[in-house]
Amino acid sequence: MINAVQLGLGPIGQRLTRYLSERDGIQIVGAVDPDLQKVGKDLGEHAGDDESGIIISPDLNSCSAIGQVDVAVISTVSPLEKMEAQIQEVADCGLDIVSTCEELSHPWQTQPECAHRIDNYCKEKDISCVGTGVNPGFLMDYLPSVLTSVCREVKHIKVERIQDARPRRKPFRDKIGVGLTGSEFEENRDSIRHVGLPESVYMIAEAMNWELTNVDERLQPIQAESSIQTESGMVQPGNIAGVRQVALGLQNDKEVIRLVFEAAVGIEKSHDSIYITGTPTFTSTVDGGINGDIATSAIIVNAIRSISRATPGLKTMLNITAPAYFSRVDEGNLAKY
């Protein structure tokens, strides 16, 4: 049995609570969130499930079960600079880490100094750490890298993630600017985006052993052409329905990686497509796309077994054993790689 503590109990954290609670081989023994509206509540009830007997603590120091914990599941922030202190605090407790932090997924080129500090600290504390999720962490980086396993040669990789944002949680729709006017979008442009595309480009490049000379990222708003009803209200014609982001991996002036992320309310045909140009050239498509909220929570749970087997340090999805669904833990196979 792997004992886990949760840090961060927002919408994804609550879904994680439900997924962790139902998984054989994992037991939640503690939960932490500094939000005073959550502190003191029962974790299970907070997640919309049955009473668990686990009371939400404001910090790790006040979590009475900390001495029983093997791994920390962290779903708190996206920026790496804010995540670093949390990693150090958890590492001081001797816990392996699986996190939803997008910028943690592959920070070696985007934020190298911070990445090296985290890596060194984790090694010093003899713990392993990985950032993952559906994207970044799987659909637009790890999966296309794995698909090239059948190739004799690869010349270009393109990934498209096109998704209707209506089924997604409200914080996701807010993150892509749904419902804003054009001027409101421009005023908030720096905070309206999907986080993690450059990290995904660099993860693919590492897998291919391609040295990139530049990574270029572009973002454009998508305007609603007609009225679109969402859970949060009506998006009027001309207002923002979502975003289209493109990240390019370049070798000198030659494009070798293209990632296209498009998320907006009203998209009719969601899909995830991977285009490999090489020998052979082929396309792999998931019709309807993979639900991001479900997949992010699932891969975090499934990565727990993989990170418990990893050597100390900051890892990416490329250097831990491939996560897969599991219903129990084989203790005989938990030796560190």
Rank of each mutant, 00 (worst) to 15 (best):
N239C: 13
T316A: 07
M208A: 04
S105H: 13
T281R: 04
L334K: 12
G196E: 03
S270C: 05
C101G: 11
V195D: 10
P221K: 14
T281I: 01
R117E: 09
G266D: 06
N120C: 09
P34S: 00
S308Q: 14
L248Q: 09
I74W: 01
L80M: 09
D330F: 07
F261P: 03
V134N: 08
M203F: 02
I97W: 08
K155L: 02
N209P: 07
Q236M: 07
R328H: 12
L104C: 05
S64I: 03
T285L: 01
V134M: 14
G177W: 07
L219N: 07
R152E: 09
S232L: 07
V260S: 05
P144H: 03
S128C: 11
S183W: 04
M208E: 09
H194L: 05
M83L: 05
M208N: 06
N302D: 12
V246K: 09
E255S: 11
E84L: 11
V329H: 11
G249N: 06
A4C: 15
V265N: 08
R244V: 10
T17Q: 05
T281Q: 00
L7I: 13
K125E: 10
F261A: 04
Y142G: 00
L95Q: 14
Q245A: 05
N252V: 09
S226E: 11
Q236E: 13
I240C: 09
V29A: 14
T100W: 00
C129S: 15
R218V: 11
K175A: 11
R117A: 07
A298G: 13
V201A: 14
T285H: 07
T321K: 02
S183M: 03
I294V: 15
E102K: 13
D253Y: 01
I87Q: 06
I74C: 00
H194R: 11
Q86K: 06
S75M: 00
P136I: 02
D141S: 03
M317W: 04
I127S: 13
K125T: 10
E160Q: 08
Y19E: 15
S308F: 04
Q163H: 07
V98E: 01
A247M: 11
V246W: 02
Q109K: 10
C151Y: 00
P107E: 12
M140R: 02
E103V: 12
R305C: 04
Q220G: 05
N188S: 10
V329D: 01
